[in-house]
Structure formats: C-alpha cells, structure tokens
C-alpha cells in the first residue's frame, strides 16, 4: 500500500490551487493512497520497448496557415467575466 502523507497532499493542493480543511486533507490522503496503490498494478506489465500513445489515430502536427481571422466580440466575452473595466477583465493586483 502506497501511503500518501498529509504533507504531500498539502503540497499537491498548493500546486492545484486548492485548499482543504484538516479533515478533508486526511480523507484525500487516504483516497489518493488507495487509488495510487491500485494504479501501481501497471508495474506488473513490461513496457520497456513500448511506444506511448498520444493520439489514438496517430494524428500529429496539425498545422494551418497563420492567417488573421475574426475573433469573438470583446463585449460578448466580457459578459462572462466576474469583473471588468474599460474593456478589460479586472483582477486583484498581481504585483505589490
């Protein structure tokens, strides 16, 4: 059984921009440990000479001409922004 520690959960939560209560942290550590343990059964398979699959149909490097095309209307897009000002999305200050 692979153990996931409370500290690991806290670190991953920070990377994922999530916060949890102490109680939730414990539950997540338990569930993640169980799922990771289950996932580790993949190690029973020898995949040394196997190529990883990215696109199942083998499609790769899809390119198009770099042409300017109409984009969404600014007013329309801003309708969904939680806060906007002067035609832009408003956010808390990024730099002190």
């Amino acid at each position: 059984m692979t153990e996931v520690s409370r500290e690991q959960v806290e670190h991953v939560a920070d990377l994922a921009r999530l916060t949890f209560t102490e109680e939730e942290m414990k539950t997540f550590a338990k569930h993640m440990g169980e799922i990771i343990t289950y996932a580790e059964r993949l190690n029973e398979l020898n995949t040394e000479d196997v190529e990883p699959t990215t696109h199942v149909m083998g499609v790769r490097n899809v390119l198009r001409e770099d042409d300017a095309r109409p984009s969404l209307d600014r007013e329309d897009v801003l309708k969904n922004a939680p806060a906007s000002k002067d035609g832009q999305i408003e956010v808390p200050s990024v730099l002190d």
Partner: peptide, 22 residues
C-alpha cells in the same frame, strides 16, 4: 474565477484562485 465563472475571495490573486476553485 478570472475570465468566467463565479469569483470568490477578496484578497490577492492567489486567494481568488484558491477560494474560487475550492
């Protein structure tokens, strides 16, 4: 919580990210 959806938190940017998502 920046470009669409429900924004939560009123502190700095990190606070908005974490509260909106959590």
């Amino acid at each position: 919580g920046i470009r669409y959806g429900v924004r939560k938190g009123d502190g700095d940017l990190m606070d908005v990210y974490k509260k909106s998502r959590s």
